[in-house]
């Protein structure tokens, strides 16, 4: 129960949620609700794992994972952008489709051990007491990429011109269109980007955080937690990142609580009856519901909300609202 170790592992675990949640923030900011995150993550996890196994190069695995999930997300793009179908239906189908494809092509991958994404230390920073060992020591490169991704995405959305276009497309696509912004193209682009990040999240699990292929258990609902996190974070990438690390630490603490014989001087209740561990496993899912309740209350108080055109197909040539 060393806090340094729990936080260190929590950061690594949380990076998965961070990628998936930031990807979803981008897609939802453009007005596309993609409920297929779980399916895209699972496809990414499988594709990356398989590619790394076949080629011996984990980076090729990462590339393939990102590409596979990105391409899958385009199916959602086509159905919801061009065909203007219900985005909930399309997203759910995408979850099923991604899961199905991942399970078909993931047949026989269980128990294999491909080369993993290497871990490394950041010189100088890793020697700072406490902060160094937690944040900059022996993490996978993806974790360091995660540190940069959240603030960069925030800056991009709020402070740059393309970021302003992104927000416009999600808030009032008619207005964006009259300014010459290509609404369809941008929506495809951010749906694709969201898919790529979901794939990255998937491969971060299977080639780094908890290496291996455990069929549908590989992601175990983290894609759904990521969608919940986006609402909790009020579509803000920085909040999403903080929430992701919090969830990562919780996930990790659950594992660590089951190990030691004594906790804070008392006998660990899990040693009396190890089946109580099942209740501990519920924690991330209960926490997600709790986070949604807290998030909704905060949103009501501050009159914040989802992007105005979230989930609404844009039909060119029709009168806007």
């Amino acid at each position: 129960m060393n806090p340094e170790i729990i936080l260190h592992a929590g950061i690594a675990t949380g990076t998965v949620l961070l990628f998936a949640a930031i990807g979803e923030v981008l897609a939802e900011r453009a007005g596309i609700l993609n409920l297929g995150v779980e399916g895209m993550m699972l496809l990414g996890a499988m594709a990356g794992f398989k590619m790394s196994l076949a080629s011996g190069n984990p980076w090729l695995g990462v590339l393939v994972a990102v590409a596979a999930a990105g391409v899958l997300s385009l199916a959602h793009g086509l159905v919801s952008i061009h065909f203007q179908a219900d985005q909930v239906v399309s997203g759910l189908s995408l979850t099923f489709l991604g899961t199905g494809l991942a399970l078909v092509f993931g047949e026989g991958l269980t128990g294999k051990s491909p080369p993993l994404i290497p871990n490394l230390d950041i010189p100088l920073l890793s020697s700072i007491p406490f902060i160094g060992p937690v944040f900059f020591d022996d993490h996978s490169i993806l974790v360091y990429f995660g540190y940069l991704l959240a603030p960069l995405t925030w800056y991009y959305i709020h402070k740059t011109r393309p970021g302003m276009h992104l927000r416009a497309v999600g808030e009032k696509p008619e207005a964006a269109d009259t300014l010459g912004i290509n609404v369809y193209r941008l929506r495809y682009f951010y749906t694709f980007l969201g898919g790529c990040l979901a794939g990255l999240a998937g491969v971060a699990i299977s080639l780094s955080v908890s290496p291996g292929w455990y069929s549908a258990q590989t992601t175990s609902g983290q894609g759904w937690i990521a969608i919940g996190l986006v609402i909790f974070a009020q579509w803000n990438p920085i909040n999403a990142a903080l929430g992701a690390y919090l969830f990562g630490a919780v996930r990790r603490a659950i594992l660590d609580l089951q190990g030691p014989r004594t906790l804070f001087g008392f006998t660990n209740p899990l040693f009396i009856n190890s089946n109580w561990g099942f209740f501990l496993q519920m924690a991330p899912y209960l926490l997600t519901i709790l986070a949604l309740i807290i998030g909704s209350r905060a949103a009501m108080r501050r009159r914040l909300g989802a992007p105005a055109a979230l989930g609404v197909p844009y039909i060119r040539g029709e009168r806007g609202l």
Partner: peptide
């Protein structure tokens, strides 16, 4: 609370 029932049912 106006919370998305999809995510809640998945969590449940």
């Amino acid at each position: 609370y106006g919370i998305n029932e999809i995510i809640v049912t998945v969590m449940l």
